[in-house]
Design a protein around this nucleic acid. Structure first.
Lengths: 162, 162
DNA sequence: CTTTCTCGGATAGCTAGTATCCGTGTTATG
DNA sequence: CATAACACGGATACTAGCTATCCGAGAAAG
């Protein structure tokens, strides 16, 4: 089981976009350059994020992407569900309905215990991801990254966003 | 992100094996027939489970598989980690080290906030799966499945285990 | 000792995620 | 108004990891 790379990129992108002024937007190519990832592939994920209402797209010249909501209103879970989907990692194939214990279909009224156990695990996983917002990540970054690096990044963004 | 089918099969297999007498074993082919899954493929997962110490293999004629420990000492997480591996679904590719914010490698002393958020989520996911044991699932099954089906299953197992 | 039955590893096939390209339409700028 | 810059969207290869299968080595039973 492995989470798509796009998820990681998506969260990083949101954190970067959170540092922009409210009216500014950043082109997909610039975001790719900033993170050192393939531009064409990142663009695909950005479109998905825009479709999910996490990002907002600014069309035309000097356009690009920006956050659709304040950073504090976007959770890591929002990004995960936009890119990776909302369905649980575990998929019950109802194998209990096969073999000698099989019963008429109407008997299977509630999911089996195994299914329920994985559903609970998936629930707490998502709940934990929903606790962290983009704003939280940004605050953490300000603590962890040295001042010199922050200023370097700020300059780069100012030039790129124009 | 999707969990391997083998995980589901593995848990079901453990529940079935938990109903066997202590000295009995069940052949891989019989387990496959019971669950209606491809025998050769299930065998692969059974071998992995045996290697991980969840199942115990009985070689030779009239051999097969049985649980390596009491059902109450085997958690769903044990099966998941045996088949799917112990590593988190999220893999940090350290993209923060690329791009204009990049710093000397020695500066990166602790994982980034995004990495930490996903690690926490992975932790609670595993903790939740560790709460449910094979014994719990078996008890749940006895409540959910009608008596007639249980007896049918018991007869089939008695004939197959010999 | 032979037969029967099992595990075990080695080997193909397939699905889903990875990665890229280019044509179309929209917006700001000169 | 004309032009250039930019995002959207679909169509298209490539890759990895899960799915599926086979047959040989080896152990217990008779």
């Amino acid at each position: 089981m492995r989470l798509s790379d796009g998820v990681e990129w998506g969260v990083h992108v949101c954190v970067v976009l959170a540092t922009l002024p409210d009216d500014a937007a950043l082109a997909a190519a610039k975001l790719a350059e900033y993170h050192g990832v393939p531009a064409a592939y990142l663009a695909k994920h950005l479109q998905v994020l825009a479709g999910a209402g996490v990002l907002r797209t600014v069309k035309g010249a000097r356009g690009g992407y920006r956050l659709a909501r304040p950073p504090a209103d976007i959770t890591v879970l929002d990004v995960v569900e936009a890119i990776d989907g909302e369905e649980s990692a575990f998929r019950c194939s109802e194998i209990r309905r096969r073999g000698p214990l099989a019963m008429p279909a109407r008997e299977y009224t509630k999911p089996c215990g195994i299914h329920r156990a994985f559903s609970r695990a998936d629930e707490v996983w998502r709940a934990e991801l929903a606790k962290t917002t983009i704003a939280d990540l940004l605050i953490g970054l300000l603590h962890d990254v040295p001042r010199t690096a922050l200023e370097k990044g700020a300059r780069w963004l100012q030039e790129s966003a124009r």
